[in-house]
Amino acid sequence: MKSIFPALIAAAITLLPNSALPNTQIEPSAFTAKSGEKLWNQTQTISGQVRSCASCHTSDPRQAGKHIRTGKPIKPMAPSANAERFVDPKKVSKWFKRNCKWTLGRECSEQEKADITSYLKSI
């Protein structure tokens, strides 16, 4: 019984409707785009350094950015300025993981990722 219990819970979660699970299937809207813009420019101090998305990507995601440490140019993040963005889901999740950890000191929630994505797609 003990060993079957986690499996039962997993099965129960799988059977739940999507709406019962937080942070999935978030529809892009003006509201999430607005939150995304706020998060984009929000600064936090991590390891003694003031950081935000804009540190490397500038406060206008339609502009090219520059890696804050190495100076390597970064192409614009807004798909309106760079059609390569948000094409490869694997790439998107990789960079969210790396860059959320650097910028916020933790991984982003699904809500935050949806907010940022909607913001970048809205401009």
Binding site: S47, R69, K94, K97, R98, N99, K101, W102
Partner: peptide, 12 residues
């Protein structure tokens, strides 16, 4: 790579 000279550079 999780602390790559101050950056996160994790790979799968």
């Amino acid at each position: 790579l999780a602390d790559h000279f101050g950056d996160n550079a994790e790979l799968d």
